[in-house]
């Protein structure tokens, strides 16, 4: 039989690779939401329905999250932080692993919801608006062949989307270079 002192606490180890990848994709998603609201008229129209000011945060339960804020009629990406955020609306994945699978396109966002692997804190109607904005943001960030892993229905690729995608890339990576 083990002695009492042999029973040790187990502090969970960090998964640096997954954490870093999730941090980067959350960062890109946050910027993508900002760019979608600036560039895409559909996203802009959706954003107008949200109250002003309004904060939305997406991330891991008790972990890192990306936050965007609508203020003065503009959507702005704030940052990815590892603190408790008091957002008006939160979308939280229950575990780093689920976030990692979602962010690498191996588990679609709708499926995460169907499986209860994520939860929403806040008004569901506003979440519908944010989901539509995020869908547009993802079509800006990624080619359609990847987007189909994330969302229910991939929108038709138009010249306008292509141009917006290029502008978004320039803005996002341009911004990244100066951060």
């Amino acid at each position: 039989m083990k002695k009492k002192k042999e029973y040790r606490e187990i502090v969970p180890s960090e998964s640096w690779f997954k954490s870093t990848l999730v941090r980067i994709t959350l960062y890109l998603l946050g910027l993508g939401i900002q760019e979608a609201c600036n560039l895409d008229p559909r996203a802009k129209k959706e954003m107008e329905k949200l109250p002003d000011p309004f904060t939305f945060s997406i991330g891991i339960h008790d972990g890192i999250a990306a936050t965007v804020q609508k203020k003065g009629g503009k959507m702005k990406y704030l940052r990815v932080i590892n603190e408790k955020i008091q957002a008006d609306l939160e979308l939280r994945f229950k575990n780093l692993e689920y976030t990692y699978l979602a962010m690498t396109g191996r588990m679609s966002t709708p499926n995460l919801g169907y499986h209860f692997r994520q939860y929403i804190k806040g008004d569901l109607a506003r979440m519908m608006t944010m989901i539509r904005i995020m869908n547009i943001a993802q079509t800006l960030l990624f080619p359609n062949i990847i987007v189909r892993f994330y969302i229910k229905k991939v929108p038709r690729l138009t010249v306008r989307t292509m141009i917006n995608r290029v502008i978004a890339y320039i803005n996002i990576f341009g911004l990244s270079a100066f951060k």
């Binding site: 329905k49 919801g113 169907y114 569901l124």
Partner: peptide, 13 residues
């Protein structure tokens, strides 16, 4: 209808 929370659980968009 499209803003209602239940629409998130529609099997199709």
């Amino acid at each position: 209808t499209i803003n209602d929370g239940a629409i998130a659980f529609s099997p199709v968009e």
